[in-house]
Design a binder for these strands. Sequence first.
DNA 1: CAGGCCATGTCAGGTTTCCTTACATAAGCC
DNA 2: GGCTTATGTAAGGAAACCTGACATGGCCTG
Lengths: 127, 127
Amino acid sequence: MDVDARKRLPLFPIGIVQRLTGLSARQIRYYEQHELVHPARSEGNQRLFSFVDVERLLEVRTLLDEGLNMAGVKARLAKRQNRRRSDSAELTDEQVYQHIRQGLLEPRTPSGVSEFQGDLFRFYRKH
Amino acid sequence: MDVDARKRLPLFPIGIVQRLTGLSARQIRYYEQHELVHPARSEGNQRLFSFVDVERLLEVRTLLDEGLNMAGVKARLAKRQNRRRSDSAELTDEQVYQHIRQGLLEPRTPSGVSEFQGDLFRFYRKH
DNA sequence: CAGGCCATGTCAGGTTTCCTTACATAAGCC
DNA sequence: GGCTTATGTAAGGAAACCTGACATGGCCTG
């Protein structure tokens, strides 16, 4: 499984994203309204943000600081978009969750104690 | 900032952790009660789990599958604990949040467009 | 300068998610 | 059979989130 699938996994409620980005909930929702981010939703309709979403919000904030308006930011981000989109197989979120759950069913140390080398670990360490 | 600080950052509510681990909320709280995990709490007393917590829960699940009981799991995990605990400077969660927020205020590409190399990126990629 | 627009703040009313506590139960063990 | 252990489930309440509406300060622009 590539890193992208994990980066796109819906993980954070808006409250955490506020702390990660320094943006207010109002700002985040406003940016979504203007299609600068597209967080997933829980069954109960609550926003769930991925790492990609958070990164994007950090970029939005930077571009706004530079004096761009909503449309300007959107255009800037759209450009980048073209340099990506070269993904391989798509996975559903549930498949990624499942994969992570099985992360520790993999190789162990001689002592039999896991060494934390499950798939989850690759969230922050490129093995 | 080392990776550990990010791994310990309180990020996930229990609902997400359920999906990441395949455990029920009841199980997760029960394990906490038996001191197998120690999630942080929000101001409103809601549990907030870090990557370390999630990894730990995945381990707990594995060990339980192997037939250990609460005490057994705790003992096993305690052993590993001794191999760690060689950390350097401690940072408060708020400091880590702040650092992440400034992630995109760093170097840019010649085009002026960020290349996503902020600190957040190191959650899953060891630069 | 008056009038607009844009980005954000704030409040209200309602829903979802989470909290603790308590009771129920299946499985394993003496 | 009668414990203990791990888990399910329900109740009542609190926290966090949702949408929609209105308010406002800063900036243009005529």
